[in-house]
């Protein structure tokens, strides 16, 4: 069975999606990621989608689900490197990535996760979503 590798970067997990995600693979990713968070006690997840040409509503739902699930386990989720064409398409599609934070690059994504983590541990809960409605 094909798998998407999950890398550990300090307190965070990094997933780079480089292949076409058909449904079963995407669902596997969701499972693997959530169990990795629980095993490693990761405080955040970076999902690099810069190699993805297409994100449809199903993929969008997977990303939202991962974000909501990790959140319940005290880990933030940042989607990194979305392509312009994908961003425009998602907006036209009407898809909102609830609970998902976004960053331009992996560095910026890590900085964002760190900042959120500091906020969470200092007891100030941040706003639930960076996406507008």
């Amino acid at each position: 069975m094909e798998k998407i590798p999950i890398l550990r970067m300090g307190p965070f997990l990094l997933v780079t999606i480089q292949v076409d995600l058909y449904d079963q693979l995407a669902l596997n990713l969701e499972n693997d990621l959530i169990s990795s968070i629980s095993k490693t006690g990761a405080k955040g997840v970076l999902i690099d989608i810069s190699a993805l040409d297409i994100v449809d509503s199903f993929m969008g739902r997977i990303l939202s689900n991962i974000a909501s699930m990790s959140r319940l386990m005290d880990a933030g989720t940042v989607v990194v490197g979305m392509q312009p064409a994908v961003a425009i398409t998602l907006v036209e599609l009407g898809l909102k990535l609830h609970g998902v934070y976004t960053a331009l690059t992996i560095e910026k994504g890590i900085a964002l996760l760190q900042q959120q983590f500091t906020l969470r541990t200092s007891g100030q809960e941040e706003d639930t979503s960076s996406q507008d409605e």
């Binding site: 040409d53 297409i54 449809d56 509503s57 392509q83 064409a85 425009i88 036209e92």
Partner: peptide, 17 residues
């Protein structure tokens, strides 16, 4: 162009699903 191509393929993906 790439954006219109992406829109079309995404729409196709929704319908295939």
């Amino acid at each position: 162009n790439l954006i219109n191509q992406t829109k079309l393929i995404t729409a196709a993906s929704e319908l295939v699903r």
